[in-house]
């Protein structure tokens, strides 16, 4: 009977799935980190914090803090960043994912003592603009990856920003923008930074740089990050290369 066949397939698949879930709940050591990252990405996109933390509890039994952060949480965030760039997920999901990820990392640090390496001082800022969300998402991603980040706030003038960078000897400055005038103002900041803090590398991001891919070069930034995770990867590469 056709109906019985489809029932059989459905029941078999369901049983397999249930057995799989049971085996995971029993804390099997075989919890695959790649698969865990994919599961976590789903929880992030659904803004399902309880499931994300339940997964974290299971991971904590079998994995180190570094594995959880580097092989599960960060790949999930990175995939979400890529999908946002392709128009497949929304900014609200990107923001909430970062927020949940930060809370997860706080718990990882408490339970495993995970500490990330630091390859230089990093600051995030919004120049002139009052739109803070991009910087907030960036700070979440950096912090989740284990970076110690100085948050310079928003609506800063070029003079204020450059003075802070010079004062703190910042190695890597990440500027988030939403409006075109603020993105253009980076050019003035770059001129002053090159004079007063020549070792500082500047990574810019935000809508104007997405809509005009040539803008980053025009304002003299060292790099453009189209998403928060791409900015993080650029930053890590610069740190590795000692740029």
């Amino acid at each position: 009977m056709v109906e019985s066949l489809s029932d059989f397939v459905y029941k078999t698949l369901t049983t397999l799935r249930i057995n799989f879930m049971i085996s995971r709940m029993k804390g099997h050591k075989t919890l695959d980190l790649t698969e865990a990252a994919m599961d976590l990405e789903g929880y992030f996109l659904a803004v399902d914090k309880p499931s994300a933390f339940a997964l974290l509890d299971r991971l904590t039994d079998t994995s180190t803090g570094t594995e959880i952060v580097d092989d599960v949480i960060m790949p999930a965030l990175e995939s979400i960043g890529d999908r946002w760039e392709k128009g497949q997920v929304s900014l609200s999901q990107v923001y909430m994912s970062g927020k949940i990820a930060e809370a997860m990392v706080d718990k990882v640090i408490l339970s495993t003592g995970h500490q990330a390496d630091s390859g230089g001082s990093v600051a995030v800022a919004v120049l002139e603009d009052h739109h803070n969300l991009g910087k907030r998402i960036l700070a979440s991603v950096l912090s989740t990856s284990g970076m110690q980040v100085m948050d310079y706030g928003h609506a800063l003038s070029v003079d204020e920003l450059v003075s802070m960078v010079e004062r703190d000897g910042v190695d890597y400055l990440m500027i988030s923008t939403l409006m075109l005038p603020a993105a253009l103002r980076v050019k003035d900041a770059m001129i002053q930074i090159k004079e007063r803090s020549p070792h500082t590398k500047v990574i810019v991001g935000g809508a104007p740089y997405i809509f005009d891919p040539a803008l980053g070069e025009e304002v003299g930034a060292h790099a453009v990050g189209r998403t928060a995770t791409e900015s993080l990867n650029i930053l890590k590469r610069m740190m590795r290369e000692g740029a």
């Binding site: 603009d129 009052h130 609506a155 409006m179 075109l180 005038p181 603020a182």
Partner: peptide, 10 residues
């Protein structure tokens, strides 16, 4: 909040 070369921010 007005600026010289763009729309004012809230």
């Amino acid at each position: 909040i007005f600026i010289d070369d763009g729309p004012p921010n809230a």
